[in-house]
Design a protein around this nucleic acid. Structure first.
Lengths: 210, 210
DNA sequence: TGAAATAATGAATCTCTATTCATTGTTTGA
DNA sequence: TCAAACAATGAATAGAGATTCATTATTTCA
């Protein structure tokens, strides 16, 4: 009468949770928060409707978990990239490249986070805004440092950092919504140059290729 | 038995329609599409629920009408600003200033269009994306012209124009969501400088203040 | 193997809100 | 002033979909 889960069942439960999360990622990425029903997710995951409620408190929690997953992934990747960078300029450049790389590798998650999350629960939409805000803060600090060092001309670091983050947002949205640019990291080269120039760095002539 | 509307009634009807539209603008701007019920709008407009359906087909149509209103206003304002501009650089600068000015003058509408519209019906969200896309196209043409003229260095005009539009999106979102910058058109000066530098123009030293 | 414990199921419930329409109020013109 | 036409109203309807829970299936271990 003592029931204790075997490893086999544990694995099954874990696999089920993953199946549900994956199904949710697919559905939310394609149809948005309001366009996706729990039934849709259950069907795709191959489980009953009630099963989902054994794993996640409710629909909001499920969506929030996904957004959070994306959020952590992006921040973590950028933080790691910055660790290996020396100068402020290198930090900025490394951040940009890391952000584009991680998005390119997780297109569905990016779609949930950037395209669909604003359409979800207001609290969840706030999360995306908060992420962009945090990224802008990082940039702002770098820019202020560089201004103090005389590497960049005096300017409103706040506006510059918002502008900086904004360029990414728009380019990534283009990639997500119509596949242009086709290769995000390749386009990154131009984007990096645009922002470095925008901030006031001297940038070597940007050749179209190689 | 022949009933013909008098001018007085016509005016009353028009005023009522406007009251409904204004109430919808307020509510949608604050609570988004799904967070706003027809009842909310009716209450704020001081009319019965059914009355709204005498003026507008349904909730979607009401929302779409508002988004469209914002859309037209922005495009129109930019088009007019560009007419008075000579060089490509002037066209770009005039577009930027016009966009910021019209948004600053219509904050609620801007909020509906930029913050809440993606949360509405997918078809309506598409409209916002389409607007940004159109603006990017305008920029792209200007940039290509300037490259051909040798006024700007060779670059991927597509990426540059997306980046350009993106800077605005982000700064305007900051203004809408937390009031930073407080004065959009004032911040515009920095923003214009950022983008002109980003594109590759030589920009005179940007002083912090007048 | 079988009784106890855990997991999964999906029909039924519950809630919410867009939309309708029978009723009431207002305007018109003779 | 009054009957016909128009306009406004909000309670009732309808439909969608999130969540629950009584029932069934699976797992454990003596």
């Amino acid at each position: 009468m003592v029931y204790r889960r075997t490893k086999k069942v544990d694995q099954k439960l874990e696999a089920r949770l993953q199946a549900i999360m994956q199904a949710a990622r697919d559905e939310f990425a394609r149809n948005g928060f309001y366009g996706t029903s729990i039934k849709d997710i259950a069907r795709r995951a191959g489980v009953g409707v009630g099963t989902i409620y054994l794993y996640l408190r409710n629909k909001d929690a499920l969506f929030a978990a996904l957004v959070n997953e994306a959020y952590e992934m992006v921040l973590d990747r950028i933080a790691r990239a910055r660790k290996n960078a020396g100068s402020g300029r290198q930090k900025l450049q490394a951040s940009m490249e890391a952000a584009l790389a991680v998005l390119q590798e997780n297109r569905d998650l990016a779609r949930v986070m950037l395209v669909q999350s604003p359409a979800g629960h207001p609290a969840v939409a706030e999360q995306l805004y908060d992420l962009l805000h945090r990224l802008a803060k990082l940039v702002e600090e770098d820019v202020e440092e560089e201004i103090a060092r005389g590497e960049l001309p005096p300017q409103d670091a706040r506006i510059a950092s918002l502008a900086f983050v904004g360029t990414f947002y728009q380019v990534v949205m283009g990639w997500l919504k119509e596949g242009v640019p086709a290769d995000l990291t390749a386009a990154g080269k131009e984007l990096v140059a645009y922002n470095l120039r925008g901030l006031g760095y001297r940038v070597e002539g940007v050749k179209e290729d190689g």
